[in-house]
Design a protein around this nucleic acid. Structure first.
Lengths: 190, 190
DNA sequence: TAGTGCGCCTAGCGTTGCTAGAATCAGGGG
DNA sequence: CCCCTGATTCTAGCAACGCTAGGCGCACTA
């Protein structure tokens, strides 16, 4: 059954190809440009092939988002581990988060803005999401049982990131905003 | 030219009718349900009439959003003026903001989530937006020249509101999150 | 080599935002 | 009183969207 294996391998490659193409197209021209037709053209297959891999366009976006959580988690982890003091670690993680949102806006959009049915805080939550949130918990400090501080710190970062991204808040002073947040959320100083 | 006046009056009424219908339809069934066809049917005119009032669908959404800022501004103002102490005023305004987002999700979406070309912080910023932001500045205290504290407080509120709305953060504990924010942003204590 | 089944593509459905051109209606002049 | 003029509204249709049915062709099995 070697041919079957090869087929499955090729199929998996194409699966990944679709996800990558969708992300690249979104990052280059925005999600509005990611239509099933253009995406199919880009992977050099016809439209229906997409539907043999994914239930629909939403599922493709979800797959792109899911990969993004690995990246974001790793980026935050690297940032916080590079610092010694809790305060500096917090600032580094916050900067990493905001940089991620600013540098890869389309990916960030798929992860945190577009409608999704990814389970975010439940038993079905994918490991990548859990790990990414865990980085925030680690740096904020699990001062309470439910991670309230981590939630609010995350929410604050997300808020300013998304308002800047939507041009509802000036892009300048983002560093100052982060400093202000860090000042308030530094562990112990609570 | 009385007939002309009447015509203009009727036209203005219809203009408002379209905005109201769009908002109601969005609040009842979500913005996806607000198609130009359904909206036209609802106002009992044909589709092209919409385009004689608005440049396109985006312009209708923008008009709905603009009205929302009056509501939100008033709601925040009422809340903060009902309290004496700065801390309680801050909490009341925050609660008003979060309640607005939770109670009128479609309207909130049009104001703060959907793509828009409304000028948010510039010379062209509509008075309603300016006034609403002014309420936040008033309650946070303009501790710096550029309203950094107000921006970050607003961003934090927006972040948790929108993450809960998108089911990316549990809906519970929203009150606790607000308390935590208020604790950190209370004037003087800063 | 003939049969068989899977995989891919062509074609098309219903819906979207938006627009061109026909039709209709109100108001004013002969 | 009637017809003409101009504005206003509607019918019809375009291109693009997400998605799907059905048939064709190729690769593998026997």
């Amino acid at each position: 059954m070697s041919s079957t294996e090869r087929r499955e391998r090729e199929r998996a490659q194409r699966h990944q190809l679709i996800i990558t193409a969708a992300r690249e197209l979104a990052e280059a021209e925005g999600w509005d440009a990611v239509t099933t037709r253009r995406l199919a053209e880009r992977v050099e297959y016809s439209q229906p092939v997409l539907y043999s891999h994914f239930k629909g366009k939403d599922a493709i976006v979800r797959a792109v988002a899911l990969e993004g959580f690995d990246d974001l988690g790793a980026q935050m982890r690297r940032a916080r581990l590079a610092e010694i003091s809790p305060k500096e670690a917090l600032r580094a993680l916050g900067r990493a988060y905001l940089d991620f949102a600013a540098d890869r806006p389309a990916l960030y959009e798929a992860m945190f803005i577009m409608p999704t049915d990814l389970a975010f805080a439940g038993t079905e939550t994918p490991p990548a999401l859990r790990a990414a949130f865990g980085e925030i918990v680690a740096v904020v400090g699990p001062r309470d049982g439910v991670g309230l501080y981590a939630e609010v710190f995350w929410g604050s970062l997300h808020g300013i990131a998304v308002l800047v991204h939507g041009k509802r808040m000036p892009a300048e002073h983002q560093g100052d905003r982060l400093d202000l947040l860090v000042e308030h959320f530094t562990p112990e100083a609570g």
